[in-house]
Design a binder for these strands. Sequence first.
DNA 1: TGCCTGATGTTCT
DNA 2: GAACATCAGGCAC
Length: 188
Amino acid sequence: MSDLSLLSQPAHIVAPLLLGWEIERTIDNRKIRVKIVETEAYDQTDIASHSYNGQTERTKVMFQESGHLYVYFTYGMHYCCNIVTGSVGEGSAVLLRSVEPLNEYSFLESTRNKKGIEVTNGPAKLCQALKIDRTYNGHNLTQAPLKLIPKTQLPSESIQRTTRIGISKGKETKWRFYIKQNKYVSRQ
DNA sequence: TGCCTGATGTTCT
DNA sequence: GAACATCAGGCAC
């Protein structure tokens, strides 16, 4: 039983807390574990967020209970996944930008047809590696086959805070967080 | 190493 | 009809 109550806080508080947490993804009886090393926060006051213009059919999961997964499809070929945070109706979430595999390396390399850090060092890459698609939109992260596993909080000295990547609006907001010196971080 | 661009579908205006 | 929370491959330097 994992306690995800920390996730009911605002996204920009939760985003650095999630660094170092693990995800357990079960595929064909394999229990794949990865560590979260890079995140970005988005909420309804944020012009770069999907929830900025209010709730729509696509974004409704962002407005639901925290501890669920918000998966969206972008650029015609990629999925990205977010962890919903805050309280119901708040419209906030944390984008997973990169993760570090902890086991099943060769399996992940085969799902991506890539090796090394290229397997999971980007938001769409990690979704492909872990086989996350829109069927997981709204998934409860306390349940298999996709579980979020809380870990002790990292010391603040090991966390770097910067502006976000890959957006055209809201660039000045420093809501990207990553673990310093981790090679899986997409851009240091 | 770093810039440029094509691929491709969903969402919103 | 345009924009898009991206990626990979190609080419120049």
